[in-house]
Simulated assay, not measured.
Amino acid sequence: MHAPATPDPIRVFLLDDHEMVRRGVRDLLDGEPGIEVVGEAADRREALARAPALRPHVALLDVRLGSGSPEGDHEGIEVCRELRARMPELACLMLTSFDDDEALFDAIMAGAAGYVLKQINGSDLVNAVRTVAAGASLLDPGATARVMARVRGDEDPVPPELARLSPREREILELIGEGLTNGQIARRLYLAEKTVKNRISSLLGKLGVGRRVQAAVLAEKLRHRAMEHDGPG
């Protein structure tokens, strides 16, 4: 009697200009059943030279290479674009230290399957790799819809209550309106819970309200306004 066939491991390629980050992610992923890190690179040139020959299923790519500030470039997103041009079946998971809406836009346009912050905990990163390897997207549908509207040039005017909020803060506000806790929002958006807490403090200040429940009431009003604008489905 033949032994049951074991599925092929998920082959992962890493790109990050910090050796300690690569080492930590490699140790994390290699310790998981069904995942194998097949290669790594520290810069764009190495990634484009090595990755295609290794035929990874998932490329875990640092958004910014050679920069430690939010103003740095998005070279990792260019690597995503170039690798997917050569390997359309490749799932690129963008990894960044900064919650940057412009980088999110660029990542979606480059064909990335997911976008997560480096503050993500280890088990969630493993789940993210498995999710994109299975062909699913980790990009928030609301963010994707905004990108498509931006491409078409038909974005609706932003209500004055939201004009001061970033797109990420608007997403968090919507989830507050749904009654989600900080921990639930963090898991939904693949953010660290501390990041969510800081974002909520920021959006409360921008909205001029002092309590979370006031933000939830505002979120509900905005949701009803959007439903009225869209009309019956």
Rank of each mutant, 00 (worst) to 15 (best):
157 P>Q: 07
100 D>Q: 10
56 P>F: 00
202 S>L: 12
46 E>Y: 05
29 L>P: 04
213 V>Y: 09
31 G>H: 13
164 R>N: 09
105 F>D: 10
6 T>I: 15
7 P>C: 12
15 L>F: 08
141 P>H: 05
40 E>K: 03
165 L>W: 09
106 D>I: 04
121 N>L: 12
101 D>A: 14
12 V>D: 05
184 Q>T: 03
219 A>Y: 02
205 G>F: 09
220 E>Q: 13
151 V>L: 11
24 G>A: 14
149 A>E: 15
164 R>C: 07
46 E>T: 01
91 A>D: 00
190 Y>D: 08
135 G>M: 07
216 A>C: 08
146 R>V: 03
19 E>D: 14
180 L>D: 01
148 M>R: 11
216 A>Q: 02
22 R>N: 06
69 S>Q: 07
183 G>M: 03
184 Q>S: 07
38 V>D: 11
103 A>D: 08
14 L>A: 04
164 R>G: 06
112 A>T: 02
12 V>H: 00
37 V>L: 07
165 L>C: 06
109 M>C: 12
133 A>V: 13
147 V>T: 13
96 T>D: 03
20 M>H: 12
111 G>M: 06
15 L>I: 10
161 E>P: 04
52 P>D: 05
4 P>L: 13
85 A>N: 02
15 L>A: 07
164 R>A: 15
55 R>A: 14
210 G>M: 02
167 P>C: 07
174 E>H: 14
60 L>V: 09
73 D>Y: 04
62 D>W: 06
126 V>P: 03
211 R>Y: 11
218 L>R: 08
129 V>Q: 02
55 R>S: 15
12 V>Y: 01
228 E>D: 09
232 P>W: 12
159 P>M: 07
74 H>Q: 13
155 E>R: 14
78 E>P: 00
147 V>P: 01
24 G>W: 08
176 I>W: 06
66 G>E: 07
63 V>S: 00
192 A>W: 00
127 N>Y: 08
175 L>F: 10
157 P>C: 12
109 M>W: 03
203 L>C: 08
144 T>K: 13
212 R>V: 09
139 L>R: 06
83 L>T: 02
6 T>D: 14
109 M>N: 15
135 G>T: 08
202 S>P: 00
155 E>T: 13
186 A>L: 04
8 D>W: 04
176 I>S: 02
2 H>W: 13
172 I>P: 00
44 R>N: 12
129 V>H: 01
24 G>F: 03
120 I>W: 03
85 A>M: 02
182 N>P: 03
82 E>S: 06
59 A>H: 04
185 I>G: 02
207 L>Q: 08
123 S>W: 08
108 I>N: 01
159 P>T: 04
11 R>C: 01
226 A>P: 02
115 Y>N: 02
152 R>N: 10
90 L>K: 00
161 E>G: 05
139 L>H: 04
43 D>G: 11
97 S>I: 09
193 E>S: 10
230 D>L: 15
57 H>R: 13
228 E>W: 08
27 D>C: 09
179 G>E: 09
161 E>A: 15
182 N>H: 12
67 S>D: 14
216 A>M: 03
116 V>C: 03
76 G>I: 01
174 E>L: 15
82 E>D: 11
59 A>F: 01
141 P>K: 10
229 H>G: 03
25 V>N: 10
194 K>T: 15
130 R>Q: 11
